[in-house]
Design a protein around this nucleic acid. Structure first.
Length: 926
RNA sequence: GCGAGGGUAGCCAAGCCAGGUCCAAGGCGGCAGACUCAAGAUCUGCUGGCGUAGGCCAUCGCCGGUUCAAAUCCGGCCCCUCGCACCA
């Protein structure tokens, strides 16, 4: 056995079978059986090398595809690449600017030098990594993806397809135009603010905040105070300006506003007609008064350092009762005004004052604590606060309602407006600070459309969605889903927007109905149709059945589409739950007839790194996929993904665990060799083996109905091998029975660990590829024999326990099975149970008629009633069954085994036999 | 906030939807034994407590409830994680 460990050459087994599969093109979708299954995974964005965690979902898809193929479906399992969007561009830009870490990362993953040079071009990135994904990942893992259908989202044909989609959406009135606010660099134009920081050098995790600007009047000028809490206008006591800052006077429409210079600049991107006309120093404002709107109160202007010219307008209204900053700043200057409380909240009188005192905040420089205090008060008040009597018409209203209403009211009466601002500084790669720019005529896909939302929600009810929690969640997501800005400007890869080609369709919107294109991509790849030929007429015909075919290829493609569509499973990571999957559904619903709407979604969770372990460092999960495949073997990895945890929980990558699965595979191989070497004859235990095997196979198949891969893998790779082991331990050695079951088992495991399964299949002389065999069926499962063996096992456990407790070295073990009359009572009890009148009284009444020892009978009846709630009693001849296992028992315990039925005279010195019950023989050891 | 998920033995992780077969699968770790010159690998057994007869007691975040019966159902509480949009 030991040698085999060294000889187990996963790599050559994998290579051998992959070559055979691929040269025979068994992955190709063919219309043969009249039943089809369309599965695909959310195609990956091209972001560079992937790590072992990414293979989880792909592997699930392949397992399911293989399983369905073996279950008599024509399977279409295509794949492609999402080339649009940031990742590829991001990588290319990093290479272009010679980013050291990126170059090093490429080298570490074995990227050739001449390629690295080329990768400054995003198109080259797409080209190169498409190949890597196919050759180094998917094919190495043995995926039976239909490689004739590979495609990406920047090919000419795909672009035509997307333009057709958008023209359809337009016809359906699902494209709308309205103003939008987006990140913008004054030097470079539109930029993306995202965590990968492709365009920017700082602030990738910034959010866009919506400040309300409330206009305070000061003579003929406006002091625009920016706030996130417009409802606190009722508690305003003063205005804050920074007396170390020079402000500007800017014309905003007809008005003149005083605000920081930076604010004026930012605002000029968000509204028309902002023009700086003068300057005024903060010092000059301090001591003056201004008029607060809504409450119509005259309030003083004070100086505060925390009023930063970098944030919003640089002017802050002071609400000391509810804003810790304001309270502390006022306290710093000797409390010239008193806080006005406007929100009732349990546990507080003057919230800001109390929290500041409780946290021991010294002054306005104590920023960290002030931030925390602000957060606490904000949350508490927002969720639990009620506007009090100082708030006119809003008194008694919960804060979260009042906030929106006050904002709306002030906006519509012109005393407030909006300003968007990043939650933190965002700096462009060019060094300039990124601003938020108003785009007056942004195009949106109208996902808020009521009819579309309703239809989609209804359709979700018809879909197979895994996990089922997500099925519950999806309607709520669809409801919440708002219009999506679907085009943008900048140097992106993507499809030009058909109604204004200077814009590019953004990557979420160009990847909604793409599985339909897999039908066409095959013909493109084979050169049977050219992109130029694919006009709206073509797509209308192929997808909607409108108009006439211009040639036979069109007809063939239409037939293909009709056969393969709709998608049965779209599988993707949990990150798609609120982005891709909803638009996948909605666009299908909008564009296609109902019979082509998607049938299912499978959302899987992630493989994460161990806490504190950084991705892309030498240890842990960052190891390149080909290295992991080589080190552990592909089947080990596939089994690891399938079995380490439920598909619907995150798992932490763990090298040792993978190592364990590798050992498991080797052990299984050894078991397999042992089994096929058996040359013995029949035995009673053979029946049990068949029953137990089929029972577990049934469990696996049931699990696969709901794609519970883990459950199925557990039955196939752990429970069934245990059954085989137990069989041999029990003395089983029947060649024909074992071979028949091994043949089934090898087929059953093939979807999960196909390489090792093929190797086994070949060894036992199976026909063709095991991958193309029919998945094994379940034969009759004899429950009574399963139960009998179960009783035997619990008998050995009982004997073990007695030996352990008494420390007897057994020489003879007496086993007494239950007497006939007790079984008769069981029959009576079963009858009573069926009639739903099983209780002590009724049962004893019946027993009285039998003429047995009533004291013993009462004890037994009592236990029996309890037991019958838990399990069903099947009549088993325990004595006969135990006799067949006598040799085994004698071997196990090294003692003579004597088995008596409860009805025969026998040796019983300790008076044990009267305890014997059906399913619970009495035992005496000496 | 909105939406979702989770807390199970030393650790990881099933079970929970469909209550009883749960003194909680499987794995890791630990202990003992077999093989071996030895180590590793492999194999076998044990791994909550008590117990000189198969038993009893404890345990599934905390508190309470429903039930003959609760890890599982219901209510409340505490704690943790994730997504929230133009980013794939």
């Amino acid at each position: 056995m030991t040698y085999f460990f060294l000889l187990m050459d996963f790599a050559s087994i994998e290579q051998k079978w992959q070559e055979k599969w691929y040269s025979n093109r068994i992955y190709e979708a063919r219309k043969e059986k009249g039943r089809k299954y369309f599965i695909h995974f959310a195609y990956p964005g091209i972001s560079g090398y992937l790590h072992v965690g990414h293979m989880r979902g792909f592997t699930y898809a392949d397992i399911i595809a293989r399983y369905m193929r073996m279950n008599g479906y024509d399977v279409i399992f295509p794949a492609g690449f999402h080339a649009t969007g940031l990742p590829a561009v991001s990588l290319a830009k990093k290479v272009a600017r010679g980013d050291e870490a990126t170059i090093e990362y490429l080298r570490r993953n074995g990227c050739p030098e001449d390629i690295i040079e080329k990768l400054s071009d995003p198109v080259e990135v797409v080209k190169f990594f498409s190949r890597v994904y196919v050759e180094d990942y998917w094919k190495k893992f043995g995926f039976l993806i239909d490689y004739t259908r590979l495609m990406d989202t920047i090919s000419p044909g795909y672009k035509r397809f997307i333009q057709w989609q958008f023209r359809r959406l337009h016809e359906l009135n699902l494209l709308v135009q309205k103003p939008h606010f987006a990140p913008f660099c004054p030097n470079c134009g539109p930029v993306a603010v995202d965590r990968s920081e492709t365009d920017i050098s700082e602030g990738g995790d910034a959010e866009i905040l919506e400040f309300v600007i409330i206009k305070f009047r000061m003579d003929d000028k406006i002091l625009p105070a920016a706030t996130l809490r417009p409802e606190t206008i009722f508690g305003v006591t003063n205005m804050w300006v920074n007396d170390e800052v020079e402000y500007v006077i800017a014309k905003v429409g007809e008005e003149e506003w005083i605000l920081s210079e930076k604010a004026a600049k930012k605002l000029s991107y968000q509204m028309d007609g902002v023009e700086v006309v003068g300057k005024i120093h903060g010092k000059e404002l301090v001591g003056k008064k201004c008029m607060a709107p809504v409450v119509e109160r005259e309030i003083p202007i004070f100086a505060a350092k925390f009023a930063s010219p970098d944030i919003a307008t640089g002017l802050v209204m002071s609400v000391p009762a509810h804003a810790p900053y304001d309270y502390v700043a006022l306290r710093d200057i000797g409390m010239p005004v008193e806080p006005i409380v406007i929100i009732e909240i349990e546990g507080y009188e003057i919230p800001a004052k109390e929290i500041v005192e409780k946290m021991g905040i010294k002054n306005q420089e104590d920023v960290e604590k002030l931030e925390e205090a602000t957060q606490i008060i904000y949350k508490e008040e927002f969720h639990k606060g009620i506007m009090n009597e100082n708030c006119n018409g809003y008194a008694g209203m919960p804060v979260n309602d009042a906030k929106e209403r006050i904002k709306e009211e002030m906006m519509s009466s012109g005393i407030a407006s909006m300003m968007r601002e990043f939650s933190k500084r965002v700096v462009c790669r060019c060094g300039e600070e990124v601003v938020i720019k108003r785009i007056p005529n942004q195009w949106f896909i109208k996902y808020s459309d009521e009819e579309l939302t309703e239809k989609s929600k209804e359709w979700v009810k018809e879909m197979n969605i895994y996990p089922k929690e997500y099925k519950e969640e999806l309607p709520k997501i669809l409801e919440w889903y708002g219009d999506r800005a679907c085009i943008r400007q900048g140097s992106w890869l993507g499809t030009p927007f058909p109604f204004d080609e200077s814009w590019v369709i953004e990557p979420i919107s160009d990847s909604t109905i793409y599985p339909a294109y897999y039908i066409i991509s095959k013909y493109v790849n084979e050169g049977k149709i050219k992109a130029e030929e694919m006009d709206d007429e073509f797509f209308d015909y192929v997808f909607l059945g409108k108009g006439e075919a211009k040639n036979d290829v069109w007809k063939e493609i239409r037939k293909e589409f009709e056969y393969w569509y709709p998608v049965d499973i779209n599988l993707g990571g949990k990150e798609h739950k609120t982005v891709h999957f909803p638009v996948f559904i909605m666009n299908h619903v909008a564009i296609f007839p109902q019979k082509y709407w998607p049938r299912g979604i499978f959302a899987h969770w992630w493989v994460t790194q161990k806490a504190g372990m950084k991705i892309s460092k030498s240890k842990g999960g960052a190891k390149p996929i080909p290295d992991a495949a080589q080190r552990y073997g592909v089947d080990s990895l596939r089994l690891y993904y399938a079995h380490i945890g439920s598909p619907f929980v995150d798992i932490e990558w763990d090298d040792e665990a993978v190592e364990q699965y590798k050992k498991r595979i080797i052990r299984l191989w050894n078991l397999f060799e042992e089994l096929v070497a058996l040359e013995g004859k029949e035995n009673k235990i053979d029946e049990w083996l068949a029953a137990a095997f089929n029972d577990k196979l049934l469990a696996a198949k049931e699990a696969m109905k709901e794609f519970e891969l883990r459950k199925a893998a557990n039955a196939l790779f752990f429970e069934i091998p245990n059954i085989f082991s137990w069989y041999m331990k029990r003395g089983g050695e029947n060649k024909s029975v074992v071979m028949e079951l091994v043949k089934k088992w090898v087929r059953a495991i093939a979807p999960f660990t196909p390489h090792i399964a093929e190797e086994m299949w070949e060894k036992i002389g199976g026909d063709g590829f095991v991958s193309l065999q029919k998945y094994p069926g379940v034969e009759g499962i004899d429950k009574s024999i399963l139960k009998a063996e179960e009783l035997l096992i619990s008998l050995t456990e009982d004997i073990d326990e007695i030996i352990k407790v008494t420390q007897i070295k057994p020489s003879k073990i007496y086993i007494y099975t239950a007497p006939q009359w007790k079984w008769d009572v069981v029959e009576i009890a079963k009858k009573l149970q069926q009639e739903k009148r099983l209780d002590m009284k009724n049962l004893m009444n019946e027993i009285k008629k039998m003429g047995v020892n009533m004291k013993e009978a009462a004890q037994f009846a009592n236990k029996l009633i309890q037991q019958m709630r838990k399990e069903e009693f099947i009549r088993i001849d325990e004595k006969e069954y135990f006799e067949t296992a006598k040799e085994f028992l004698e071997r196990e315990f090294g003692a003579n085994i004597l088995i008596y039925s409860g009805d025969e005279e026998c040796y019983d010195p300790a008076n044990k036999r009267r305890h014997a019950m059906p399913y619970k023989p009495a035992i005496y050891i000496e």
